[in-house]
C-alpha cells in the first residue's frame, strides 16, 4: 500500500523533530505529578496516584497531539513542503491519512507508555499501605484506557481538521484545547445544574445553552470512566457506553471526511 510510504515518512519526520525527547519530558512531568499527588493522601495513596495519573495523561497527550499536528501538517504548509508533497504521483488523501495514522500511532504509543508508567508507580506506592478499596490495574484499568483512546482519537481528528483551515499555528492549540475543554465538561456541568438548581441565577438558560452543545459536540466527558479502575467496579461504566463511544468515533470520522474534502478542494495558489 502506497499510504504506508506516507506513514513511514511522517513517523520519520516526527522522530527527527525530537518527539522522543518531547515524549520523555511529558513522561517525566507525569511521573513527578503522580509521585507528588500520592503524598497528599495517607489513606488512599494508590487511588489518588492513579486518579491524578489518568488526569495528567488526559491533559498531556492532547498537548502531544497538537505538537504533532503542528509538525506534520502546519509546518508542511508554512515551509511550503506541501508543494513538493502534492506533486508526488499519489492522491492527496494518502498524504493526509498517512500523517493522521502517524499521529495516531505516536499518541497511542504515548498512552501505552504513560499507562505502564502509572501502573508501575501505583503498584509501588500501593505496597506501603493496604487500602480498604484497592485500585484495579487489570481489566478495569484497560477498559478505562480504551475509553481514553477513543477520546484522544476524536481530538486527533478535530485537531487535524483545524490544521487545514487554520491561518496561524496557535489556532490549532486554541481550537483543539477549546474543543477538548468544552466537549469533556459540558455534560458534567449540565448534570451539576440539574442537581443544584440554585448554583447560578439563570439556571434554566445555562442548562438550555449547554444542552445545545450536546447536538454539536460529542460527550467526551462520558468517556472518562476512571472510577471503574479507581474503585475496581464495572458499575461506573454508563449504560449507554456503546452509543457514547460510537458517537465520538463517528464525530471523529466526520471531521476526517471533512478534512479530506477540504484538502481535495484546496488550491495551492
Amino acid at each position: 500500500m502506497q499510504i504506508i510510504s506516507d506513514y513511514k515518512i511522517a513517523l520519520n519526520i516526527a522522530y527527527r523533530a525530537r518527539f522522543l525527547t518531547i515524549g520523555f519530558w511529558l513522561l517525566l512531568v507525569l511521573v513527578t505529578v503522580v509521585l507528588i499527588a500520592a503524598q497528599f493522601s495517607g489513606r488512599q495513596p494508590a487511588t489518588v496516584a492513579l486518579d491524578i495519573g489518568i488526569s495528567a495523561t488526559r491533559l498531556l497527550l492532547p498537548l502531544l497531539i497538537v505538537l504533532l499536528v503542528q509538525e506534520l501538517f502546519t509546518r508542511e504548509f508554512d515551509r511550503r513542503y506541501i508543494l513538493a508533497s502534492m506533486t508526488y504521483p499519489r492522491p492527496r488523501h494518502h498524504f493526509f491519512l498517512g500523517r493522521l495514522l502517524a499521529i495516531f500511532t505516536c499518541t497511542m504509543a504515548g498512552l501505552v507508555v504513560m499507562a505502564v508508567a502509572i501502573a508501575i508507580l501505583v503498584t509501588i506506592i500501593g505496597q506501603n499501605y493496604h487500602q480498604a478499596t484497592p485500585v484495579s490495574l487489570g481489566t478495569h484499568y484497560i477498559i478505562t484506557l480504551i475509553f481514553i483512546a477513543i477520546d484522544l482519537s476524536t481530538i486527533i481528528a478535530v485537531s487535524a481538521f483545524l490544521s487545514l483551515i487554520a491561518t496561524t499555528p496557535s489556532f490549532i492549540l486554541i481550537g483543539s484545547f477549546g474543543f477538548l475543554i468544552v466537549a469533556r465538561s459540558y455534560s458534567t456541568i449540565i448534570a451539576l445544574l440539574e442537581q443544584k438548581h440554585a448554583l447560578v441565577a439563570k439556571q434554566q438558560l445555562y442548562h438550555d445553552s449547554l444542552g445545545f452543545l450536546g447536538y454539536i459536540l460529542p460527550d467526551l466527558g462520558a468517556l472518562d470512566v476512571r472510577m471503574t479502575a479507581l474503585y475496581n467496579s464495572i458499575n461506573f461504566i454508563p449504560d449507554n457506553w456503546p452509543f457514547i463511544a460510537i458517537s465520538s468515533l463517528a464525530y471523529g470520522l466526520f471531521f476526517i471526511g471533512l478534512a479530506l474534502a477540504i484538502l481535495h478542494k484546496k488550491q495551492f495558489n
Binding site: 519526520i13 508543494l83 504521483p89
Partner: peptide, 20 residues
Amino acid sequence: ASSRRGIAYVPESPSIYEQF
C-alpha cells in the same frame, strides 16, 4: 494522480525537509 508517475518537478525555491 497517476499521470504524475512519469513527472518529476523542481520548484524555483526548493523547500526540502531540512532535518534530513
